[in-house]
Amino acid sequence: MVELRETRIQTRQRVQPDDTNNYGSAHGGMVMLWMDEAAAMSAIRFTGEWCVTAHVDGIDFRAPVPSGDTLYLDAYVYDAGRTSCKVRLRAYHEDPKTGSRTETTDSTFVFVAVDDNREPMPVTTLECSSEESEQLRAEAFAAFEE
């Protein structure tokens, strides 16, 4: 069993000029790439195996992230099946000078654990033994499992 807190990945990406669109803000494709990478790290931490992206729930871009600013990413596994796990992924525009954040995206990414032949393999059980873990899991279910 793996504790939910152990799957949490919090990381940042600085938006450089090469990462932007014609409007000087993070290109949607770059944001999706960074989200996928953070979510994959969370899934790999949970399964202890290599994982591949199987499904992404809707991604709505609610706010831009200007060039020079930071994209803050928060990912954690909140549910698991036989060979897959669901990762909640939230992205925020973070002002690098003040640290203030505005949520830009909230999504679920589904990953499948694979063996050396790229065949699906069983995953462990997710444990929520702390109040923080229970709260994170409840928030994810409330947001996506309506």
Score class of each variant (00 low, 15 high):
Met1Ser: 14
Met1Cys: 08
Val2His: 08
Val2Tyr: 09
Val2Lys: 15
Val2Cys: 06
Val2Phe: 08
Glu3Gln: 15
Glu3Trp: 13
Leu4Thr: 11
Arg5His: 06
Thr7Pro: 03
Thr7Arg: 02
Thr7Cys: 08
Arg8Leu: 07
Arg8Ser: 06
Arg8Met: 13
Arg8Lys: 13
Arg8Trp: 10
Arg8Asp: 07
Ile9His: 03
Gln10Lys: 12
Gln10Ala: 09
Arg12Leu: 09
Arg12Val: 13
Arg12Ser: 12
Arg12Thr: 13
Gln13Cys: 03
Gln13Ile: 04
Gln13Pro: 02
Gln13Trp: 10
Arg14Trp: 05
Arg14Gln: 14
Val15Met: 11
Gln16Ala: 14
Gln16Gly: 06
Pro17Val: 00
Pro17Asn: 15
Asp18His: 09
Asp18Pro: 06
Asp19Arg: 00
Asp19Thr: 00
Asp19Ala: 03
Asp19Glu: 03
Thr20Met: 00
Asn21Ala: 11
Asn21Thr: 12
Asn21Asp: 13
Asn22Ser: 11
Asn22His: 12
Tyr23Cys: 10
Gly24Asp: 15
Gly24Pro: 08
Gly24Asn: 09
Ser25Glu: 07
Ser25Phe: 14
Ala26Arg: 02
Ala26Cys: 11
Ala26Glu: 01
Ala26Ser: 11
His27Asn: 05
His27Gly: 01
His27Ser: 01
His27Tyr: 14
Gly28Trp: 04
Gly28Val: 11
Gly29Val: 09
Gly29Trp: 13
Val31Leu: 15
Val31Asp: 02
Val31Pro: 01
Val31His: 00
Met32His: 06
Met32Cys: 06
Met32Trp: 01
Met32Ser: 08
Leu33Thr: 15
Leu33Cys: 10
Leu33Gly: 07
Leu33Gln: 15
Leu33Ile: 11
Leu33Asn: 13
Trp34Gln: 00
Trp34Cys: 04
Trp34Lys: 13
Trp34Ser: 01
Met35Gly: 12
Met35Glu: 00
Asp36Ile: 04
Asp36Leu: 10
Asp36His: 04
Asp36Ser: 15
Asp36Met: 09
Asp36Arg: 08
Glu37Ile: 14
Ala38Arg: 00
Ala38Gln: 06
Ala38Lys: 05
Ala38Met: 04
Ala38His: 04
Ala39His: 03
Ala39Tyr: 02
Ala39Gln: 03
Ala39Phe: 02
Ala40Tyr: 08
Ala40Ile: 04
Ala40Lys: 05
Met41Lys: 07
Ser42Thr: 04
Ser42Asn: 04
Ser42Ala: 12
Ser42Cys: 01
Ser42Met: 00
Ala43Ser: 10
Ala43Arg: 00
Ala43Cys: 08
Ile44Trp: 02
Ile44Lys: 15
Arg45Ser: 07
Arg45Phe: 04
Phe46Gly: 05
Phe46Asn: 03
Phe46Ile: 08
Phe46Ala: 04
Gly48Ala: 02
Gly48Asp: 12
Glu49Gln: 13
Cys51Ala: 13
Val52Trp: 00
Thr53Ser: 14
Thr53Ala: 10
